[in-house]
Design a protein around this nucleic acid. Sequence first.
DNA 1: GCAACTATGTGTAGCATGCATATAGTTTGC
DNA 2: GCAAACTATATGCATGCTACACATAGTTGC
Lengths: 127, 127
Amino acid sequence: MPDKKDCCCNSKNHKMEKFLEASLLLLLKRQCAHGYGLIEQLELLGFSSEDMNVSTLYRTLRKMEEKGQVKSYWKAGGGGPKKRVYDITDQGLKDLEEWRKIFEYRKERIETFLEMYEKQCEYEEVL
Amino acid sequence: MPDKKDCCCNSKNHKMEKFLEASLLLLLKRQCAHGYGLIEQLELLGFSSEDMNVSTLYRTLRKMEEKGQVKSYWKAGGGGPKKRVYDITDQGLKDLEEWRKIFEYRKERIETFLEMYEKQCEYEEVL
DNA sequence: GCAACTATGTGTAGCATGCATATAGTTTGC
DNA sequence: GCAAACTATATGCATGCTACACATAGTTGC
């Protein structure tokens, strides 16, 4: 990851549109979980606990429920305050598959960008 | 590119944060150009002329000039109305290099996502 | 009893983008 | 000579994602 200090582009520019939503769908496909517990798991997908924005996480989950991608229920016991546990729905599984396609496409475009950049640098070196 | 029809995620979700800005910097590193002329060149980086949002393009270029990434001057002649031609600046070149790093990073994260998705699907098939 | 931790939520603002619309000079066809 | 099409640039408004700050409340440890 590029150093955020001395970077023209501040940390806000590192965000990737909707990557959080898609990541949550993927984690919930593996197993149901509650918001706070998902923070740890998100590290598997490159989100750092320090930078992790908890309010965004909760808001995203509620929006995903509005859209019918996940459903939630309250669960008490097991230590600590009660948790709102999320399950993925059929709609969520379909949407996750769409995200997979979108990310394949984004990856290709990024690769095209990187290749053009490299070629241009090589070309300039020859001059 | 995934089919936009029948997609849970509408076309708006295909956009990639700041990809246009970075693409413009890359194209202007190759050679100076005016806004309208950049539309064609953007196809090299996966932007389709039909979908291309011209207003966003012009607004982005003006913002980039405010940030000192590019500078512009008016050029008459050569047929058609006069053009505002953009040149990349030293700041723009530095920022482009930062974008390269950011996109390498984004690519890695997308790859992590895709790998986890595939593994999960394989795992479920075995069951 | 109080601090630290777990857990969930809202209010507000910034910022990138899309859609619609405005403006105006240039070229082409009749 | 004039209308239509094309080239070219720009702004107003709405939407949507994210960040930052703040609010709330139950649980555990000392």
